[in-house]
């Protein structure tokens, strides 16, 4: 059914696969930390792309699912002592359920109204968690160190977390590809291009949008659990940073929305760039302004993102740059 010989898929998959493999072979802690951040954003950007790129719904609250799922997963692994794998899945499932509930209400809105509502959802979630005592209120939760012990101490646990994150990132790539190359994905593209026409052609837009939202929200929940477990604590301002939602969005735009490879390269490029700017003495204090400048230039002059630009320029590369 699916064409697994499609080179575009393998380019994306191998990129993430080999990237993680190199880190595992070299076994350096600093490299792992850098790679962790990049893979995290690859997963977040690629999952946002399912809703934003494929379906055309801009979600300013993608990080809500990272935050809520992460909080829940962290709670499970640290407070209730569940195994990390199960806790992470729990975080993902909770995110997906919440996305379903939110989606039923909010996905009726179109365009800018939907985008606005997602801003509201992000803030409401942050404000709610800050007041929710089981999650530690405004101060958040700290990891119970016995949770690390189970995996042979903090050092080992960090490597395990990294491997899990790598697998999750690969899973996002595979799922993104499957969605894109499916009948469901074709329906999503139709919704993106013109929702009313899509419905007239028989696409059940309300249901398909909700499904896309749900899939898009599942992965941030997993990633959130792993991230907070790695950090050892979780607090509202860290879990629901509106800024982070926007950064993920910038990554998708930078690489090229709606493409498989776009968010992966976008996340990588943005993270590397930020990493460079933060340590550079000249740009250290200007990295936010520079990121903004880059975003503005992309929006104004390269709306298809980097990968999209190459696809337009070199049509023969289309097969490779899915």
């Amino acid at each position: 059914m699916h064409n697994w010989r499609q080179p575009g898929f393998w380019v994306s998959f191998l990129l993430v696969f080999l990237g993680g493999l190199v880190v595992l072979v070299l076994r350096q802690d600093t490299l792992r930390e850098t790679a962790f951040t990049i893979l995290m954003f690859v997963g977040l950007a690629a999952s946002l792309n399912i809703l934003m790129g494929y379906t055309g719904y801009v979600n300013f609250g993608h990080i809500v699912f990272f935050g809520l799922g992460g909080y829940f997963g962290f709670f499970l692994v640290s407070e209730l002592g569940w195994p990390l794998y199960v806790a992470a899945l729990g975080g993902g499932v909770l995110s997906a359920i919440i996305a379903y509930l939110i989606g039923c209400a909010v996905l009726r809105l179109r365009g800018a109204y939907f985008a606005l509502a997602t801003i509201g959802v992000n803030e409401a979630a942050r404000a709610f968690v800050s007041n929710f005592e089981p999650f530690g209120g405004a101060t958040g939760l700290y990891v119970n160190f016995s949770a690390y012990e189970r995996y042979g101490g903090a050092g080992q646990a960090l490597w395990l977390t990294f491997i899990l994150l790598w697998l999750v990132a690969l899973a996002v790539v595979v799922v993104s590809y499957l969605v894109k190359r499916s009948r469901f994905g074709l329906g999503l593209s139709a919704i993106r291009e013109d929702e009313d026409t899509a419905m007239v052609m028989g696409v059940n837009a309300p249901m398909d949008k909700t499904k896309a939202f749900l899939i898009s929200a599942f992965f941030p929940g997993l990633i959130g659990t792993l991230y907070f477990f790695k950090n050892g604590n979780v607090e509202p301002d860290d879990a629901f940073r509106f800024q982070m939602s926007l950064e993920v969005l910038v990554m998708v735009m930078l690489g090229g929305k709606g493409l498989l490879l776009g968010p992966i390269l976008g996340a990588f490029a943005y993270e590397r760039l930020r990493g460079y700017l933060i340590v550079s003495p000249i740009f250290k204090n200007l990295h936010l302004a520079l990121s903004g400048g880059i975003l503005l230039l992309i929006v104004l002059f390269v709306p298809g993102g980097g990968v999209g630009w190459f696809r337009d320029r070199f049509p023969r590369l289309r097969r490779w740059l899915e």
Partner: peptide, 16 residues
């Protein structure tokens, strides 16, 4: 659906 190929456009009709 401008971003899709002509064939993909028509496939939407057949699929849905």
């Amino acid at each position: 659906l401008n971003d899709l190929t002509v064939r993909e456009n028509v496939m939407v009709g057949a699929c849905f």
